[in-house]
């Protein structure tokens, strides 16, 4: 490949608009879309991992042991699926939805 210095902007575009960096969407932070914010109440959590399985935005972190971690607020869109599906402990939810910025 010839030097990219001195090249025009359009000359540096990848041929055929191929995206060369897999998973580069992580640079796009969708957390700003959120109007409702999920909050995890750890003591009510039974570690069923349903929230993790059902999150459309892969926004529930997992610890090295495969346990539920915190929300990833950089990407969480606040849809509330996790909260609705959370069985919680004895019927008491481990996720509640709250208004963003409250």
């Amino acid at each position: 490949m010839s030097k990219s210095k001195g090249k025009k902007f359009w000359e540096k575009l990848p041929a055929g608009s191929v995206v060369l960096e897999a998973g580069s969407a992580v640079k796009f932070k969708t957390g700003t879309w959120r109007s409702m914010r999920p909050r995890w109440i750890e003591e009510n959590c039974i570690q069923c991992m349903f929230c993790w399985m059902y999150c459309p935005d892969m926004s529930i972190k997992v610890t090295a042991e495969g346990k539920r971690g915190e929300f990833n607020y950089e990407y969480c869109k606040g849809c509330g699926i996790c909260a609705l599906e959370c069985p919680g402990r004895k019927g008491v939810k481990a996720i509640v939805m709250e208004e963003e910025g409250k």
Binding site: W10, P14, A15, G16, V18, V19, A22
Partner: peptide, 29 residues
Amino acid sequence: TVNPLLDLDRPKSFGPLILTDLYHEYKRA
């Protein structure tokens, strides 16, 4: 080969949606 899709070690995405900010440049190229 140039950017072969079958290269499993370097996964690529072909055919993105390109908006008004870049389409013109791609056509220029």
